[in-house]
Amino acid sequence: MRYHLDLYIRLVGVQIRSQLQYRASFLMDSAATGIVTVLGFLTLALIFRRFNHISGWTLWEVAFLYGMVEAAFGTMDMFFSGFDPQNFGKQIRLGLFDQILLRPVNATVQVLASDFILRRLGRIIQGLIVLGLAFANQDVQWTLGKILYLPVIFVSLVMFFGGLFVIGATITFWTVESIEIINVFTYGGSEMMSYPMHIYQDWMRRFFTYVLPGIFIVYYPALFILGKPDPFHMPQFAYFLSPVAGFSVLLAASVFWQFGVRHYQSTGT
């Protein structure tokens, strides 16, 4: 454990150093990934100028979801980039996963440490700014519980998205041709969760409740923190399922991942 943590820090440190080597390009990249977030939010704001509400939610209420999801997805992308299905699929195709198996280190730790994208800080910061604006422009009835719950929601989101990346990466052990479909789940999933779940059709919402419990990750916590009514009349504890749901998805993903590694060892590529 100690050894793996040590090694992880060392491997990630090497990458951060090499990424900071070109300062100008690092700053530009960070700004660019951030600008995507800001532009997305401005588009959202423009829509609200015409409609004022989306299904009973104001711009700043949606901004809570949006900022939270953006910052968390950016954080996940920074840490879990090694599992980014697109990257990982390429590694599999080039046979680089063999090199990982040739080293006497836990394979998961190596993949996790194989790519660390510091410039995602741009996206994270912009996401946090949107979140800050969301709080500044509405009256939230703050309690100690709500304040303590915020970082929990954040970590749950990171675990949830991380789980999706790991599942996507694992699928590339079987097929590298379906990257686009996998991206629909990872990137599409984060896009969906930036908006209130009750705007979606029933089948989609059911999918994100019972199959992939995304609805509990940020939507239900948002109902609790912003004091919005629950249109689906779930029991009250649904507000607090965020960490359970996030952890379960990551856990299921890692079981699937282990299975994938074993499959890889029995078939090669």
Binding site: D98, L101, L102, R262, Q265, S266, G268
Partner: peptide, 12 residues
Amino acid sequence: STTLKMLTGLLV
């Protein structure tokens, strides 16, 4: 290569 991959533990 297949033999070598088995000897190095990459393949079962």
